[in-house]
Lab assay of single mutants.
Amino acid sequence: LVRYRTISKIPQITLNFVDLKGDPFLASPTSDREIIAPKIKERTHNVTEKVTQVLSLGADVLPEYKLQAPRIHRWTILHYSPFKAVWDWLILLLVIYTAVFTPYSAAFLLKETEEGPPATECGYACQPLAVVDLIVDIMFIVDILINFRTTYVNANEEVVSHPGRIAVHYFKGWFLIDMVAAIPFDLLIFGSGSEELIGLLKTARLLRLVRVARKLDRYSEYGAAVLFLLMCTFALIAHWLACIWYAIGNMEQPHMDSRIGWLHNLGDQIGKPYNSSGLGGPSIKDKYVTALYFTFSSLTSVGFGNVSPNTNSEKIFSICVMLIGSLMYASIFGNVSAIIQRLYSGTARYHTQMLRVREFIRFHQIPNPLRQRLEEYFQHAWSYTNGIDMNAVLKGFPECLQADICLHLNRSLLQHCKPFRGATKGCLRALAMKFKTTHAPPGDTLVHAGDLLTALYFISRGSIEILRGDVVVAILGKNDIFGEPLNLYARPGKSNGDVRALTYCDLHKIHR
């Protein structure tokens, strides 16, 4: 019993810090008490220290592992850092350059016999395009090294910054494609005289377009951006097909006994025919423009016929181009109408809503002055909100995010209106959640004399007048207030005048 009563005193000691020596009952000389009392004092002292730490809000209350900052290894790049964003855009520009100039170089340097010394005699450094290609190869190699040090988000939505895990993730992902696209074939085969082989191998750079397509997928929600990307894709495919079309004609031209190829026909049409040795002929500019003209006309199913396939190889390629053109029509131009419709969806919704308003007016036989006010209010409210119901949009977000959005939407009023000066951010967040926005066209009466005042109004834009009878008592403008002081009276009061809008007004109100 003594032991039980001794232990039962522990909660009292913990909360009230009572010393055991003052209790005459606990001072009985028993061996059990002498053993338990020192333990009680020690526990009391420890609990006292913990309570003191909690009340003082000291940093040592938290466990040590929670006080440590997340460790980022040296030379690790955050995937959302500004440097990584700028670097990704730079790589994107280099990939676009590669997609345009690599097929052009591979096709127009394929057994090209233009006048001038061969590239091997001039030297590697004197070729501007080769120098640019070398810079692109170096940048792609540097990009691989950067990807080995860039964080990523795993399946659990955690940012991984450990170098080993980053390397394994990159090896399992895009490393092989990036490595093949970054191989400097110019340096590996330079001086061997195989410019045709170098041009063909350099087309491996186009593998990076797969990554670019995935990154550009984030802009699919913007109709104008999608339309622009589709047109660029169409032009890029036409450019690639033009390079292939020229390569076919250029390879067949020296081996044909009869002059029936499209390059021969082009030379005869523009007065620059090929001679018996295969030299001469149109310039590279004429060849490229004509090839691009043929691919565009074939892809769009126009086909004027002034550039036509004559050999079997050219006919087979033309059939493939027609098939590609039909697929592009289905996948690209078939979506253009939907994209344009999405661009004008706001206008369509406006006309639909206006039609419903006019049908309501016609069905209920609203008189002319009231009908005009109804239409003007709808037009003004639509121009202010673009038909978007803010309350319906915010309803799907958590309250903390709703408060931040409301604070942002009402920031101008909260910053410049005098009653809100000096208020804490928590108070402003709470008030912003209570605001209701209303609009009024010129001549609209917001409050009639004798109406119950259940709200306090803040003028965000425009001006109003307060009338008693036919006498203008006051004219209020931006950041002015009218209405009933909230919670100042037990019952809502009545208006002693009319409140009429002089201009288009936007008002925020808080109800009782």
Score class of each variant (00 low, 15 high):
Gly422Asn: 15
Leu236His: 01
Glu114Trp: 01
Val210Trp: 15
Lys418Asn: 11
Met390Val: 05
Met390Ser: 05
Val289Lys: 01
Cys417Leu: 14
Gly249Pro: 01
Gly261His: 01
Glu115Tyr: 03
Phe185Trp: 05
Gln341Arg: 04
Arg421Asp: 07
Ile284Pro: 01
Leu207Ala: 14
Leu413Trp: 04
Cys232Ala: 11
Ile96Ser: 01
Ser412Ala: 09
Ala330Glu: 01
Ala403Asp: 01
Ala106Lys: 01
Pro184Glu: 01
Tyr377Asn: 13
Ile77Val: 07
Val95Trp: 01
Ala330Gln: 07
Tyr65Asn: 05
Thr120Ser: 12
Asn250Tyr: 13
Thr311His: 01
Ile340Glu: 01
Ile339Asn: 04
Leu134Trp: 04
Pro282Thr: 01
Leu67Asn: 07
Arg259Pro: 15
Glu158Met: 09
Lys436Pro: 02
Arg211Pro: 01
Leu197Gln: 01
Ala330Ile: 03
Gln365Asn: 03
Gly346Ile: 05
His162Gln: 10
Phe108Met: 08
Leu292Gly: 01
Leu428Pro: 01
Ser276Cys: 04
Leu227Gln: 03
Leu401Tyr: 08
Phe397Trp: 08
Thr347Leu: 06
Pro309Ala: 03
Leu343Cys: 09
Leu216Val: 14
Lys111Glu: 11
Ala403Gln: 10
Gln253His: 03
Met179Ala: 15
Thr203Val: 11
Leu92Ala: 03
Ile260Leu: 10
Leu197Met: 04
Tyr219Asn: 04
Cys126Ile: 01
Ala430Asn: 12
Ser301Phe: 06
Gly281Lys: 01
Ala432Asp: 03
Ser383Glu: 09
Phe83Tyr: 15
Asp137Thr: 08
Gln253Trp: 06
Phe420Gly: 02
Asn275Asp: 04
Asp137Cys: 02
Asn391Glu: 08
Asp88Pro: 01
His162Cys: 11
Arg429Val: 03
Asn410Phe: 09
Val159Ile: 10
Gly116His: 11
Met256Tyr: 04
Lys84Glu: 01
His364Gln: 03
Pro369Ala: 04
Ala338Glu: 03
His351Glu: 03
Cys406Phe: 05
Val136Ser: 04
Ala130Asn: 03
Tyr104Trp: 01
Leu90Ser: 04
Pro442Asp: 01
Tyr384Phe: 06
Ala403Asn: 04
Gly199Asp: 08
Leu446Lys: 01
Glu375Thr: 10
Thr233Ser: 14
Ser383His: 01
Ala423Asp: 01
Tyr329Gln: 15
Ile146Leu: 07
Arg218Leu: 08
His448Gln: 08
Leu374Arg: 01
Gly443Phe: 01
Pro82Phe: 05
Trp262Ile: 01
Asn156Val: 09
Met231Gly: 05
Lys434Arg: 11
Ser313Gln: 04
Leu292Val: 01
Ala348Trp: 15
Ala392Ile: 06
Val180Gly: 11
Pro128Lys: 05
Cys232Thr: 05
Ser298Val: 13
His73Asn: 05
Cys232Arg: 01
Phe83Ile: 05
Arg373Lys: 13
Ala155Thr: 14
Leu279Gly: 14
Pro184Lys: 01
Lys395Trp: 03
Pro442Met: 04
Arg74Asn: 06
Leu78Trp: 06
Leu414His: 01
Tyr170Ala: 01
Leu129Ser: 11
Val226His: 03
Pro282His: 05
Asp143Leu: 01
Asp404Gln: 03
Trp87Lys: 01
Ile146Thr: 04
Val180Glu: 01
Ile405Trp: 02
Ser331Arg: 03
Pro282Gln: 01
Ser326Arg: 03
Gly281Leu: 01
Ser337Trp: 03
Phe378His: 10
Trp262Val: 03
Val336Ala: 01
Leu299Pro: 01
Leu229Asp: 01
Glu221Leu: 01
Asp186Glu: 13
Met179Asn: 01
Glu196Pro: 14
Leu355His: 09
Gln415Gly: 11
Ala224Pro: 14
Lys172Phe: 09
Thr300Cys: 15
Glu252Arg: 01
Tyr222His: 04
Leu299Met: 08
Glu64Ser: 06
His439Lys: 01
Cys417Gly: 10
Met179Tyr: 03
Ile91Gln: 01
Pro184Cys: 01
Ile189Lys: 14
Cys243Leu: 01
Cys427Asn: 01
Phe228Arg: 01
Asp404Ala: 03
Ile405Gly: 02
Lys425Ile: 06
Leu279Cys: 13
Gly164Asp: 05
Ala167Lys: 01
Arg71Tyr: 14
Val226Gly: 11
Asn410Cys: 08
Arg371Ala: 12
Leu67Asp: 04
Asn391Phe: 10
Pro254Val: 14
His351Asn: 05
Leu355Ala: 13
Gln415Phe: 14
Thr98Gly: 01
Lys272Glu: 01
Lys66Arg: 11
Tyr344Asn: 08
Ala247His: 01
Ser331Glu: 01
Gln253Lys: 10
Ile405Arg: 02
Glu114Pro: 15
Ser383Thr: 09
Thr352Asp: 11
Ile324Met: 07
Thr347Gln: 07
Asp404Cys: 02
Lys285Phe: 09
Arg208Ile: 04
Met390Pro: 07
Gly164Tyr: 11
Met433Thr: 09
Ala348His: 06
Tyr274Pro: 01
Phe363Thr: 13
Leu401Ala: 03
Ala182Arg: 01
His364Ala: 08
Ile96Asn: 01
Phe304Arg: 01
His380Leu: 05
Asp404His: 01
Phe333Leu: 12
Leu355Phe: 15
Ile339Thr: 03
His416Met: 08
Pro70Ser: 08
Gly191Met: 03
Leu145Asn: 01
Met256Asp: 15
Gly346Val: 07
His351Lys: 06
Ala403Arg: 04
Ile340Thr: 05
Phe304Pro: 04
Tyr288Val: 01
Tyr384Val: 04
Glu376Cys: 11
Cys400Trp: 11
Phe83Pro: 05
Tyr65Leu: 07
Ala242Gly: 01
Ser298Pro: 01
Ile96Phe: 01
Cys406Glu: 01
Asp133Gln: 15
Arg214Ile: 03
Gln253Leu: 14
His364Lys: 01
Pro367Met: 03
Gly334Ser: 03
Trp240Gln: 01
Asp257Trp: 01
Val302Lys: 01
Tyr97Asp: 01
Leu227Trp: 01
Leu241Tyr: 01
Tyr329Arg: 13
Leu409Cys: 03
Glu314Pro: 01
Ile198Met: 07
Gly123Leu: 05
Trp75Thr: 04
Lys285Asn: 03
Ile135Thr: 04
Val86Trp: 06
Glu359Leu: 02
Trp75Glu: 01
Arg358Pro: 03
Val447Tyr: 12
Ala242Tyr: 01
Ile135His: 01
Asp137Leu: 01
Leu414Phe: 14
Thr438Val: 12
Asn250Glu: 15
Thr385Arg: 06
Pro273Gln: 01
Glu359Ile: 01
Lys272Arg: 03
Asp186Gly: 14
Phe360Ala: 03
Glu221Arg: 13
Ser161Pro: 03
Val95Phe: 01
Tyr80Cys: 11
Lys434Trp: 01
Asp88Ala: 01
Lys434Glu: 01
Glu158His: 10
Ala430Glu: 11
Pro254Glu: 15
Pro82Tyr: 15
His239Ala: 01
Leu145Tyr: 01
Ala107Ile: 01
Ser298Trp: 01
Ser345Asn: 10
Val321Asp: 01
Ser313Thr: 14
Val132Cys: 14
Tyr222Gln: 06
Tyr293Leu: 05
Val393Leu: 08
Gly223Phe: 04
Phe83Asn: 05
Pro367Cys: 05
Ala440Phe: 10
Ile198His: 06
Glu196His: 15
Leu279Val: 09
Thr233Ile: 13
Ser326Met: 14
Pro398Asp: 03
Thr311Tyr: 01
Gly193Cys: 05
Val226Trp: 09
Gln372Arg: 10
Ser194Lys: 15
Val212Phe: 09
Ile141Lys: 01
Ser383Phe: 03
Gln269Leu: 01
Glu376Gly: 10
Ile72Met: 14
Thr352Val: 08
Thr98Cys: 07
Arg342Ile: 05
Gly305Leu: 01
Met322Gly: 02
Thr113Asn: 14
Leu263Ile: 05
Leu216Tyr: 05
Ser194Gly: 15
Met256His: 12
Gly193Met: 04
Pro369Val: 03
Ser313Asp: 05
Thr352Pro: 03
Phe420Tyr: 01
Ala125Tyr: 13
Leu327Gly: 03
Lys434Ala: 08
